[in-house]
Design a binder for these strands. Structure first.
Length: 477
RNA sequence: CGGGGUGUGGCUCAGUUUGGCUAGAGCACCUGGUUUGGGACCAGGGGGUCGCAGGUUCGAAUCCUGUCACCCCGACCA
């Protein structure tokens, strides 16, 4: 195509420089803008609308499992943060502190929440007295602050939006069950809503959350072969309960500690969508979360009846999120623009089409063009959106599978990581020395110990001692 | 926090080496007209004081000192 060159100029090709491609897409699709605050971004209407759609889908699923939304303060007194030792050590290096109220120095400084375990615990300690008060299934939608040194839009910013669920249970079993339930909910949402396949598994001790007994994760593979942790679910056991003294009287009238969980997903998911589905023409959005699912582009819109027809079609398609692009740009410009923004389906309607009682449909994922009778438009668009959603998941899945390798020896491991970006499945003895050594040799970290274990060999890929787990390894964002 | 790079209209950049007339270009924007099936064209127009502070000089975007911000690569994190 003659205009390919122009498109390549507009967006850096992902094969040339993936990082630059990402930045170009984020900016050109108008998802964000940089702000005057280092590491903080302006989330623009399209970016925020994607988040709202993700939020809506997740929130609905949370509530179906009995979760209720609450809101906690954004400030945490230093003394509260310090109650759980591992937790404070994990987060202290990256919290922002408030030291003054107006002109007066504060008696005790407060950090801006990097996560709200301590606040929920403080509250639960006062609120829970009896087994009748359990379980507590609370979630909050908010922003948190972590003073990151290196920042990238959506992937790592100093302030980001997320949800954090915090539950308290009477028994360890119940807490573990909830931890896994939420991880599965995340994984299913990623696949069904974001069309993004994920590996479910457990983090090694080295990679687990500060203060957790066990951390479970879903790991996705980006187009460049790097892994992205896309959601985590933690089982705290009774560690926090003991630190914060959260006790209840059980049926047997004995005082017991609660067992807690927490789980979170963030705006990082938007970065994941970009890097999983995007192409050299820009963003590609799964229909389920696309702010605009269908764009109608009138051709020769100055001609009588064309714009009217376009609006008429918008009404016909009222079951979808539809926009008519009636700006005075040329059609070619509108085509490119809609592709840049990742709109799943484009409807072209011009005098020729009107005369023939038809319209041209173009799908964003395959660029395939089809002509349909106007009488079938509604049905066809519905089918197309479903098919795109399905196709994106399949494409992402086959990309991931094609970039998942196995290694039995360290030589194989190093060679694979170096030559073929992606996941490497390898056996592990369970000791952190091997984990550290693998990172040092290859730059890859353990992503997770998948629930779906495979017996690749009997020995640890690193030290050769008997293996206890098969682990997914990879370079990560 | 270490290494590298960049700051000049909204954006991308030229000009800086060797200081000198009114600081330039393309894109974007505004007005009018012609156009419209893959980023249209013509004409006219508005907009910058060169990241910031100080210094050298008759004269600074250009030289010096300091400072801030952003980007990339590493170490740490959703």
């Amino acid at each position: 195509m003659a205009n390919d060159k122009k498109l390549v100029e507009a967006i850096t090709s992902m094969d040339v420089d993936f990082a630059q491609w990402y930045t170009d897409v984020v900016k050109k699709a108008e998802l964000i803008d940089y702000s005057s605050v280092k590491g903080c971004m302006v989330i623009k209407p399209d970016g925020y609308a994607i988040w709202e759609n993700i939020q809506r889908e997740l929130d609905k699923r949370f509530k179906e499992t009995g979760v209720q939304n609450v809101y906690m303060p954004m400030f945490i007194p230093e003394s509260l943060l310090q109650k759980e030792k591992d937790h404070v050590e994990g987060f202290a290096p990256e919290v922002a502190w408030v030291t003054h109220g107006g002109l007066e120095p504060l008696q005790e400084r407060m950090c801006v929440r990097p996560t709200s375990e301590t606040l929920f615990c403080d509250f639960y300690a006062r609120d829970i007295h009896s087994y009748r008060d359990l379980p507590k299934l609370y979630n909050q939608w908010c922003s948190v602050v972590r003073w990151e040194k290196t920042t990238r839009p959506f992937l790592r910013s100093r302030e980001f939006l997320w949800q954090e669920g915090h539950t308290a249970h009477a028994t360890a079993e119940e807490a573990e069950e909830r931890t896994i339930q939420m991880l599965n909910l995340y994984a299913d949402s990623c696949e069904q809503v974001l069309a993004m396949p994920v590996i479910r598994g457990r983090k090694t001790d080295k990679e687990k959350f500060a203060g957790a007994e066990a951390t479970y994760t879903i790991e996705a593979l980006m187009h460049d072969g790097k892994a992205l942790q896309s959601g985590t679910s933690h089982n705290f056991g009774d560690g926090f309960a003991k630190a914060f003294n959260i006790q209840f009287s059980d049926k047997d009238n004995k005082l017991k500690y609660v067992h807690q969980t927490s789980w979170g997903m963030t705006t990082r998911l938007i970065g994941a969508i970009i890097m999983v589905h995007g192409d050299n023409n820009g963003l590609v959005l799964p229909p389920a979360i696309a702010p605009v699912q269908v764009v109608i582009v009138p051709v020769q819109q100055q001609k009588a009846g064309v714009l009217d027809k376009a609006y008429e079609l918008k009404n016909v398609l009222s079951g979808f999120r539809v926009k008519v692009d009636d700006t005075d740009k040329s059609p070619g410009w509108k085509f490119s623009e809609s592709e840049m923004r990742g709109i799943p389906v484009r409807v072209e309607i011009g005098p020729r089409d009107i005369e023939n009682g038809q319209a041209v449909l173009v799908r964003r994922d395959t660029h395939e063009k089809i002509t349909v009778a106007l009488s079938e438009l509604d049905v066809k668009v519905g089918e197309l959106l479903k098919d795109i959603q399905k196709n994106l998941l399949e494409k992402a899945r086959s990309h991931r599978d094609a970039h998942t390798y196995t290694a039995v020896t360290m030589d194989e491991f190093e060679k694979t990581i170096e030559e073929k970006p992606g996941f490497v499945k390898a056996m592990w003895c369970g000791c952190q020395e091997c984990e550290d050594k693998i990172k040092e040799l290859t730059g890859a970290t353990s992503r997770c110990m998948p629930f779906a274990q495979e017996q690749i060999s009997d020995k640890c890929v690193c030290c050769g001692k008997p293996a206890v787990k098969m682990v997914y390894w990879g370079k990560a964002y």
